[in-house]
Design a protein around this nucleic acid. Structure first.
Length: 587
RNA sequence: CGGGGCGUGGCUCAGCCUGGCUAGAGCGCGUGGUUCGGGUCCACGAUGUCGUAGGUUCAAAUCCUAUCGCCCCGACCA
């Protein structure tokens, strides 16, 4: 491609509304333009990058035997009503009406349509397994779109849905997808990490997210420095299997001894104030968080959660705990901290003095509260706390794992390692769905015995556009983008210095030969000053540059520059072609 | 949805507090010249319903109200 004929509107200054590097660089490099909040034009350069990623995804998906198809973007409300998500999905689902006033929605994901297709066309165990995927534009009316293409409302996604005869077969498919994902992100040249993930409202039992490690990532992830354990903060386990069970057994036998005393703590409401006032560490305090859990169309339930003073709570973990304890009967709940008046009603005290003893709510305790030590809690009385309280005094109905992990916490898997915290950008996810959708939508097949069975499903997504953004977050410097070759819009950028006929001619020939050799080359043939060309090349981020100027002309060679390292060398044309072929073949 | 902020040529922004000449700068863009290994220099030029609507005023980019859009923090979220 000749630069003079291309559409690459680079900008000298950062756009005012961009926050993260990938967003800034994609705008400045002429990759994308904003049309509305979270909605972008993908200019030729961006499209080329997306296509590269898609190609890798296709190759790896096809290699597993998955079948590509294309589902509608707009779908009828009926299907979503059938799965129950027309009501549950909320405002993120963009709803539209057709001329006959029928309800439709713009697809944010495609479980419904695909399950509908499967139940109509897959009838027998002989037709299974099937894994169907598409690469398509999705729309989610995000509450807060941000960071450009990283969290857009409209985005390109690869989504796959698998159908198997039973859970065992389905888990095998899950593993195959998991492995394929590892290959995909490796081939994209990314530093990534698969982590255990919470399954959330989408349901299901088993899930991993694939995170590109980047400081600008929106998710906190933890991983063990010794073993393979890695998980999203939403899911990071802190109590070992069995440990909670043991605590809860013990809880049944527990006898309160009441060896605590009330102390006056006038006006000391926060953990810091109380700790300072009583001259104890914040970890010696136990805070009582009063949560209000509201399920759709139900009365809110209030729960008091006990947590060490220096710990934080994870909503997703609390939701699971509430569900496991039977306090709520669905995971589709809204969790919020109780309001001032509600706290007063439950504790009889001002906010800041809530405690487990005498509170009018069920008390759930984080596993970290278990132990021999005595601690300080609120007295449910304004300006007072209780000192020397043991967990047995606290009317706890159950211990649960609800706190947020911290760097340095013991690994729940191997027990010998400690957890490291990093930030990640979620570029892919694999879900084992089970029969959630097949049951709701009656997707059944006949087994060998002629009996009906629900198909067991899995779903697997990859954010194509987000992966491109993540790649930039991970590969850039102060001058611009540095694409991994495999997903770069072009392999090499050919730059002419000077405007004399001779240089031009030489460059034209090299351009021709590179193209002949199948190299994707962006030929900067513009009548611009060298500085402009260099700056644009560095910004756009094509991994290699070939410079034809005085130096090259004098030696009869080509100046070859590696964008990432800045390293320059004089080489012959065939060597460049060989090197690129090798790079592309290797990875 | 709660809190904060911003809407002025294509882009980045000044002007607004304290209302008053033809509304500015830099970049970009066009023409001519100059220069040519890291965003040359010079000259000339084009480009604005000051987000929109209403109000106050002799007079509004500037003050008031409403509205729309956008950004940030939080809540939320495959």
């Amino acid at each position: 491609m000749r630069y003079s004929k291309a559409l690459i509107p680079t900008l000298r200054e950062d756009p005012a509304d961009a926050e993260v590097v990938s967003h800034k660089l994609m705008i400045r490099g002429g990759y994308i333009r904003k049309v509305a909040a979270g909605i972008y034009d993908y200019l030729p350069l961006a499209l080329r990058v997306f296509r590269k990623i898609e190609m890798i995804v296709r190759e790896e998906m096809d290699a597993t035997g998955a079948l590509e198809l294309l589902l509608p973007i707009i779908m009828p409300a009926e299907l979503w009503q059938e799965s129950g998500r027309w009501d549950f999905y909320g405002k993120e689902l963009l709803r539209v009406k057709d001329r006959a006033d029928h309800d439709f929605c713009v697809g944010p994901t495609h479980e419904e349509v695909i399950t509908d297709l499967a139940r109509r066309e897959i009838k027998s165990y002989r037709d299974l397994p099937k894994n169907l995927y598409q690469i398509q534009t999705k729309f989610r009316d995000e509450v807060r779109p941000r960071f450009g293409v990283m969290r857009g409302r409209e985005f390109i996604m690869k989504d796959a849905y698998s159908f198997d005869v039973d859970v065992e077969a389905s888990k095998k498919t899950y593993q195959i997808m998991y492995d394929a994902y590892r290959r995909i992100f490796k081939r994209c040249g990314l530093d990534f990490r698969p982590v255990e993930a919470a399954t959330g409202a989408i349901g299901g039992t088993l899930s991993h997210e694939f995170h590109v490690i980047a400081s600008s990532g929106e998710d906190a992830i933890f991983f063990c420095d010794k073993c393979e354990y890695a998980s999203n903060v939403e899911k990071t386990r802190l109590a070992k299997v069995g440990q909670l069970q043991k605590m809860n057994e013990e809880l049944k036998q527990a006898k309160p001894d009441g060896k605590y005393v009330e102390v006056s703590t006038p006006g000391k409401k926060t953990i810091e104030e109380v700790a300072l006032f009583l001259k104890v560490k914040s970890s010696e305090l136990v805070k009582t968080l009063i949560y209000k859990a509201t399920a759709e169309k139900k009365e809110p339930v209030f729960v008091a959660v006990l947590l060490k003073g220096d710990h934080e709570l994870v909503d997703a973990k609390l939701t699971n705990a509430l569900f496991d304890q039977g306090i709520v009967d669905t995971r589709d709940i809204v969790l919020e901290l109780a309001g001032e008046s509600e706290v007063k009603a439950l504790t009889g005290a001002d906010v800041g003095f809530a405690g487990p003893i005498g509170i009018k709510a069920k008390v759930l305790a984080d596993a970290s509260v278990y132990g021999d030590e005595r601690f300080v809690v609120g007295a449910n009385k304004t300006d007072a706390h209780l000192v020397g309280v043991s967990w047995a005094d606290c009317n706890i109905i159950a211990f649960a794992d609800v706190r947020r992990a911290r760097q340095g916490d013991r690994c729940p898997e191997c027990s010998s390692g400690s957890l490291l915290e990093k930030r990640g950008i979620e570029v892919g996810q694999v879900f084992h769905l089970g029969t959630k959708y097949s049951e709701k939508m009656k997707a059944v097949y006949l087994d060998e015995a002629g009996k009906d069975n629900f198909m067991v499903m899995g779903c697997y997504g990859i954010g194509i556009s987000r992966t491109a953004a993540a790649a930039i977050e991970q590969n850039h410097d102060d001058k611009g983008i540095i694409w991994p070759v495999q997903i770069a819009p072009y392999h090499i950028q050919l730059i002419t210095m000077g405007v004399d006929e001779k240089t031009r001619e030489v460059a034209e020939n090299i351009y021709y030969e590179l193209e002949e050799a199948g190299v994707q080359v962006l030929f900067d043939d513009r009548d611009e000053r060298p500085g402009v060309k260099f700056a644009d090349a560095d910004l756009i981020g094509v991994p290699y540059q070939a410079i034809i100027g005085k130096k090259a002309m004098a030696e009869g060679k080509i100046e070859f520059k590696v964008r990432k390292t800045g390293e320059r060398s004089m080489v012959e044309l065939p060597d460049i072609i060989d090197r690129l072929k090798k790079e592309l073949g290797e990875k």
